[in-house]
């Protein structure tokens, strides 16, 4: 049975997705994580497959137990302005269906 898709559950899943990519800072406390300047910039220029890792992690986490949500196959766009907040606003909240 799929978990209810609400902000609390989605945010919990979001941090699991970020942690699965190996970005260490992403497992910090959620509120701190979403402050600008803490989040800035994943070194995407050095690790170009970060969007792929994010999408793969999202499918792996969100489509599996306990969430069991449907995930749209859309990679996030990573640019110099990206923060974990903008990633949440523009990608995480857009790809999940339940």
């Amino acid at each position: 049975m799929a978990l209810i898709l609400n902000e609390e559950n989605l945010k919990k899943a979001y941090f699991e997705v970020l942690a699965t990519t190996g970005i260490g800072a992403a497992v910090n406390d959620g509120d701190l994580l979403l402050q600008k300047n803490v989040l800035v910039v994943v070194p995407e220029s050095m690790h170009q497959d970060f969007p792929a890792r994010l999408l793969g992690s999202a499918i792996h986490i969100l489509a599996g137990e306990p969430y069991s949500w449907t995930v749209q196959n859309l990679e996030p766009t990573i640019d110099k302005d990206m923060t974990f907040q903008s990633l949440w606003d523009e990608w995480m909240t857009e790809i999940v269906m339940a």
Binding site: T21, G22, I23, G24, A25, A26, V27, N28, V38, L39, V40, V41, V42, P43, M46, H47, F50, R53
Partner: peptide, 9 residues
Amino acid sequence: HTRTGYARL
């Protein structure tokens, strides 16, 4: 990285 908050893969 989780302790230092250094956001790097």
